[in-house]
Simulated assay, not measured.
Amino acid sequence: MPKHEKIVETIPVGPLGIIALESSKSLGAKINEHLVSWRDLRESEHKETIAFKGYQRDSFLINACCPRFGTGEAKGMIKETVRGYDLYLLVDVTNYSLTYSVCGHTNHMSPDDHYQDLKRIIAAVGGKARRITVIMPYLYEGRQHRRNSRESLDCALALQELTNMGVESIITFDAHDPRVQNSIPLNTFETVQPTYQFIKAILKNVPDIKMDADHMMVISPDEGGMSRAVYFANVLGLDMGMFYKRRDYTKIINGRNPIVAHEFLGDDVEGKDILIVDDIVSSGESMLDVASELKRRKANRIFVVSTFGLFTGGLDKFDKAYEEGLIYRLMTTNLVYQSPELLTKPYYINVDMSKYIALIIDTLNHDNSISGLLNPVERINKVLEKYNQTKKK
């Protein structure tokens, strides 16, 4: 029985409503399609009762927007009732493709702009919803998660601000440091790993892949991503290695200490396919430096696997790396904005997360536990078996 068929054993918390802010319209539409399809097919003797009112609808998307004045000021507007609803707000704070006008000048929306729009929509709800859950795949200011000197703790402040506005739960993906949840200890904060979706996408798109310790290895590009790489290696039964960055702490370039060299710790990579696993591809320079070092050590095909593809420096360097045989495939999710140019690249594999998010929303709406969804080991083993991949260690 499919997982989404088991949920009808409990009554929904309230009528389901999804508010996909402008930054997440395309992802929200895909999530909505899954939910509408599942609930149309779902059978239950209780569906005609008042507790299931509005359970089956043509769309669960709520009409909301954030129009702006000529000065750039904005307001949140919700154009239909949300009283008593179990609301899920979806926002992509990294979507730079959206613009607005300030006194005749065009501005691209920054993470700060998207975050303010999220707060405006929460304010427009006005406390009338039964419950508000924010799904923020890329955690706003998640990279500013700790204090190294006299500096701001932006992520912690944002989480506290949202919960003070009435948000009950915050769901994010692959948080840079999950310990930011300590700033809101009495509220739900879930950081979801897309490990299963990555493994499934590789098996589907690379038919000749061999996911065993003799043919593949997992690499963490830095010490901060060790736990992510360890999990990948454990569920696949692979060896792992890591690079650590030697930095010049006497200089600051673009807000960071420049990397002097990448040092490698791990077994021999010669002749093996490599999964370089990280949470963010920003400019991509660090990731490509690691790929170059692995090729120098005679690694075979290199797969760059990252939850968020931001590509702040454009795609030219990845095009060049692909042409030179430095990387074989690049995989990121659709949790954040993907440029049309990226989707056309021959080396790019798009990992769709809409079904997974729809399943999380459906489960939470029925007030069921999502612990089984957060630990996908069983599903990973099934997909490995489906593609005849034996786990050897």
Results as ranks from 00 to 15, higher is better:
N205A: 12
H145M: 05
I122E: 06
S354W: 00
I252G: 00
N187T: 05
K75D: 10
Q389W: 11
I31H: 06
S282Q: 12
I170D: 07
D316G: 07
G76R: 05
G255A: 06
E385T: 15
A229Y: 09
I253Y: 14
I219S: 02
D112A: 15
M216I: 03
G14P: 10
V377F: 07
F311N: 04
R379K: 15
Y55G: 01
F189H: 04
D362Y: 02
Q193K: 09
S183H: 11
I31N: 08
I170E: 04
G142Q: 04
Y322D: 06
D316W: 00
R131P: 05
L21P: 02
P207S: 12
S23Y: 10
A20L: 05
D319C: 13
K317T: 11
K128Q: 13
S110W: 13
R379E: 15
Y138H: 15
L90Q: 06
M216P: 00
V36T: 02
H114T: 11
I209M: 11
S339R: 10
L157M: 12
D154T: 15
A358M: 01
S220C: 08
P67L: 10
L98C: 03
I219A: 04
S286C: 01
K345S: 01
D212E: 10
V102W: 10
R228F: 14
L236A: 03
I7M: 02
H366L: 05
V93M: 08
R120A: 08
S339N: 11
D319H: 14
T94S: 14
Y337I: 03
L265H: 05
I280Y: 12
V134Y: 04
E378R: 08
F318S: 02
T312A: 12
R120L: 15
R57Y: 01
K245C: 07
L335W: 03
E48V: 05
W38L: 11
L236P: 07
P346L: 04
Q56R: 13
I50E: 14
L41I: 02
P12G: 00
V230I: 15
F173W: 15
Y55C: 00
K53N: 15
P221R: 09
A64R: 12
R68Q: 11
Y249V: 09
L288I: 04
V102T: 13
M331C: 07
L21A: 00
G237T: 02
L61E: 12
N381I: 02
K393I: 14
Y244G: 01
K251G: 00
K245Q: 14
T250W: 10
N388P: 03
L118F: 07
I360T: 08
R256Q: 14
D352Y: 01
K30N: 14
N32L: 08
D239V: 02
I50R: 12
P178D: 08
R57W: 03
F173P: 09
A158Y: 03
K75R: 12
